[in-house]
Design a protein around this nucleic acid. Structure first.
Lengths: 139, 139
DNA sequence: TTGCGTGCAAAGGTTTTGCATGGCA
DNA sequence: TGCCATGCAAAACCTTTGCACGCAA
């Protein structure tokens, strides 16, 4: 990983602020552009894309793609969770992302590493499924 | 899930054949178009997209997106694995996708369902990381 | 024969890029 | 001052769609 100096610009700060404000949601570029428009903040979309790229590289933001979608989604992660060390579950019904510290899964992870030689990258791994409240709602 | 009759066309068969032939790789639309060009098979790209959509709906093919990629990737899955019931691990270095039946992980999955109410969808879940042979190669 | 499938080209949506200008350190 | 960042518009990229024709059942 190479060191790089990033300038602290107004745009960069506004983007981080917006991501924090929308935390817990699946945020698209469009969401951000709308947010900026509603708050009278002027940020070109190229700037938005470029800043998000940087933030992803710095591990301040996670980038992911939902199944059957064309546009990327983003989530603010820094200084809230240490996302290197736990699992992420995403409910496909309500979209909620759950950061998950669970002994059982960490044991399974160790087993996987030691017995099968597979080292998990938690930053890119998302387990999809359905959460309890969505399951209950169906009934 | 609605029932639908699918015609068995030459194009559909060629696409399935190509996917089987490229099994184990991360297959893009471009890979398939190249494959067809190299084998003198004429298939329009719209036909390719439409067939892949159908195949995904029929659970014959899995569609997924790698991190930081814009184009979708595909994998042939039918009649080889019952992908509803096991985990999938993908090595971010060599790209290999491993279908994984592991007691420890199934137990963890049960724990997750019973204690945390989260029901995993294996068709959409891929665990990313690094496999043993890639880890060994680095040294 | 019926209606889904195909192929082409155009349209649509998302992301990237070139370039002149602006702004942080 | 020296670079990196920004903004605009155009380009590039991936996927979908409309329509006329073809082909499986």
């Amino acid at each position: 990983m190479k060191e790089k100096a990033y300038y602290s610009t107004k745009q960069r700060e506004e983007i981080i602020k917006a991501l924090k404000e929308l935390e817990g949601k699946d945020i698209t570029i469009k969401d951000l552009l709308d947010y900026f428009k509603n708050n009278d903040i002027k940020i070109g979309q190229a700037t938005l894309y470029r800043n998000l790229d940087s933030l992803v590289e710095e591990n301040i933001v996670r980038k992911y793609t939902l199944a059957n979608e064309r546009s990327a989604r983003f989530e603010y992660i820094a200084d809230v969770h240490d996302c290197h060390n736990h699992f992420h579950f995403k409910c496909e019904k309500c979209g909620k992302l759950i950061h998950f510290n669970c002994e059982t899964f960490l044991k399974a992870q160790n087993h996987l590493a030691q017995e099968h030689g597979f080292d998990i990258n938690h930053l890119n791994t998302v387990i999809y499924g359905e959460c309890r409240s969505c399951t209950n709602h169906k009934k």
